[in-house]
Lab assay of single mutants.
Amino acid sequence: DHDVVPEDKFQETLHLKEKEGCPQAFHALLSWLLTQDSTAILDFWRVLFKDYNLERYGRLQPILDSFPKDVDLSQPRKGRKPPAVPKALVPPPRLPTKRKASEEARAAAPAALTPRGTASPGSQLKAKPPKKPESSAEQQRLPLGNGIQTMSASVQRAVAMSSGDVPGARGAVEGILIQQVFESGGSKKCIQVGGEFYTPSKFEDSGSGKNKARSSSGPKPLVRAKGAQGAAPGGGEARLGQQGSVPAPLALPSDPQLHQKNEDECAVCRDGGELICCDGCPRAFHLACLSPPLREIPSGTWRCSSCLQATVQEVQPRAEEPRPQEPPVETPLPPGLRSAGEEVRGPPGEPLAGMDTTLVYKHLPAPPSAAPLPGLDSSALHPLLCVGPEGQQNLAPGARCGVCGDGTDVLRCTHCAAAFHWRCHFPAGTSRPGTGLRCRSCSGDVTPAPVEGVLAPSPARLAPGPAKDDTASHEPALHRDDLESLLSEHTFDGILQWAIQSMARPAAPFPS
C-alpha cells in the first residue's frame, strides 16, 4: 500500500487522527484517494484483494465477484509491481515495509483507509498491559489484515481490525468495519463480527460495544468508541475503539438485554438511515425525530424517553415518601432524547437536551391539597369587569335574561352582576328603583315568574340570613337542586349567576 499512500500523506493522516480522531482521518484520506487517478484506485483494489485478505475476510469475495470481468485485479505471486511496468521484474528490497512494521508496532494501528489505518492507538496503548502477550500477537497480524480498504464507483468500504477477539475476553470487541457502500446513491455502514460483515439490516451488537450512531460526518466517531472515555459513568459499556482492553462492566443492572439487537429503522417514522440506538431497549431513532430533536450524538450512555420514564417511576415512589426537613431528592440522569409524543421536562434553567451534561430531575413533595375552585371561562368573567365610571356595571355583549332568554333592554344586578328583565323577575308590577337594581334572587323575592315553557326556580334557592346585616342577608345558599333548576333554563347567565354566588365573597367592612 506504500505505492498507493505516500509517506507524507501517511504522516498527515496520523497527525489528523491524533488531533480530530479516526473518523475524520478516514474521511480525509478517502476524499484524497478519490481525487487520484484511476491507476492509484486500481492499485488500491489490488492491494485489498490479496489472497491473505480474501482468506481472512470471507465477505470480500462477493465484492470481488461483483467487479466487471474485464477488470484485472489479480496479484502476481513473485511480488508487487506497478501496473504500468511491462516487465515482470522483482521490485527492489522494500524498506517501507520495515517502516510500516515499526510504526504500526509503535502506534498499534494508524488512522488511514489502508491496512495502516483504523484502530485507535492511544486507547490501545492505555489498555494494553493486562493483555500484552495476546495483543502483541495481534499486532503482528495487523499489517496483514488490519485495514481492508475498498473503493469503487459501486462499493466503497473501509475495514478496521481490532485485537478484541482475544480468547477469554468477556464481551470482547470482535472488530470495527467502517463501511461506506455507495449503492444507488445511498450510504450504509456496517460492522465486522468474527470475520463476517453485518449491514444495518442485520447488524449484531457484538459483546459490549454497539453501533451508536451510523454517521460518517462530524467530529463524533462512527461508533461511540473513545478509548479514553473507558466505561460509562454508571458502569455503562465498553467502547469499540478500545482495542485489546480488559473486560469492562457491560450494562447497567436495569438493562433488559446485554447482547440485544437494535432495530435498523426509526421507532417514530419507521424509516432507515442514520440512527441513534438506545442503551436500554432495542429501539433506534433519527436525531430529527426525537422531541426535542438533537443536533449531535450525546457522549456516554444514552437512553430513550421510555427508558428514562421507567427509571424515574422506579425512583419516584421512594422520593415521595414523607421525609421531614430533607432537601428534594435529586436523581442524576443521562441526557435523554425524547421520541415524538413523549416529553420529560427538567427543571427550568437546565441546558437543552443533547448537550454533554447531566440533567437533574428533582422530585419535590406534593403540595397540600386544596379545595378545587369553580372553573370559569374568561368570557364568563367579562360582565364582572365591565364597570362604568360611576361604579355601575355596563352590559356585556350577548347578555340575556335568565328567565325569558331575551337580551333586549336587559338590566344588570348590582349584587350578582346577572342580566335580567324587571318585568320577568317582578311581574307583579313592583316599581323599579332608580339605583341599586337587584334581581329577584338578590332582592329576596322568590315568586316564580309566569313564563310559559320555563321551569320556575326551586323555592330553596334563597336562604336569607339575619336582617340586621343587609349585605350578609342576601347571601344565597345554592344546592344541587338549585343548579339543576338553573340548568333547565338553558341560559348561560343562569349558570354564571350560580357560579358567582357559589364563590365566597369577603364580608362587608363594618362602618367606622
Rank of each mutant, 00 (worst) to 15 (best):
D356S: 13
L352P: 04
T430L: 11
A467R: 09
T331Q: 09
S488W: 03
D481M: 05
L364I: 04
A417R: 14
E265I: 10
R283V: 08
V268T: 09
L478T: 02
P466T: 14
P389L: 14
V410A: 09
L290A: 11
G398R: 05
E265P: 06
E342P: 13
P327Q: 07
P427N: 11
L395Q: 10
P351H: 11
L364D: 07
A449Y: 14
H421V: 02
C277L: 09
S339G: 08
P348L: 12
S379K: 08
L258Q: 08
V446F: 10
P253Y: 15
P450L: 05
G494N: 10
A456L: 11
P464E: 04
R412F: 02
E390V: 13
V312H: 07
C307M: 15
A251E: 05
A472S: 10
E390S: 13
L275S: 12
P427T: 08
A371M: 09
C442A: 02
S306L: 07
G280F: 12
S458V: 08
G341F: 15
R323S: 09
S378G: 09
S339W: 15
L352F: 08
I297L: 08
L333W: 14
H479R: 04
D445H: 07
E475V: 05
R270C: 13
H286C: 14
S443E: 09
C304V: 12
P256G: 12
R400S: 06
P334S: 12
V315H: 14
C416V: 02
P335K: 14
L478F: 08
G444K: 11
E342H: 15
R480D: 09
S245W: 13
R505G: 05
P383I: 02
D481R: 02
R432D: 05
A456D: 12
P348T: 09
G391A: 13
R338L: 15
D377H: 12
I276G: 11
E342Y: 15
G244K: 13
R295Y: 14
S378I: 14
P293T: 09
L337H: 09
P335V: 12
R412L: 10
H259T: 12
L395Y: 11
A456I: 08
P459M: 15
T408N: 07
I276H: 09
L437D: 05
C269F: 05
G341A: 14
W422G: 09
Q242H: 10
Q501Y: 02
A284W: 15
G444E: 03
Q393V: 14
H425S: 02
S441E: 12
C424G: 02
G244R: 13
A248H: 11
E390T: 06
E484A: 01
C269E: 06
P448N: 01
A456P: 10
E330N: 11
E274L: 04
L373M: 14
S254F: 10
R270H: 12
S254T: 14
K362M: 15
L462D: 15
M355F: 12
P292A: 12
N394S: 11
C304K: 13
P464S: 08
P247M: 13
R432H: 05
Q316Y: 11
L250E: 10
S369T: 09
G453K: 08
D493K: 02
A507D: 05
V454K: 07
E326M: 11
T435I: 12
Q260C: 08
C401K: 01
L290V: 13
P466N: 03
A504M: 04
D377R: 04
V410Y: 08
A353N: 07
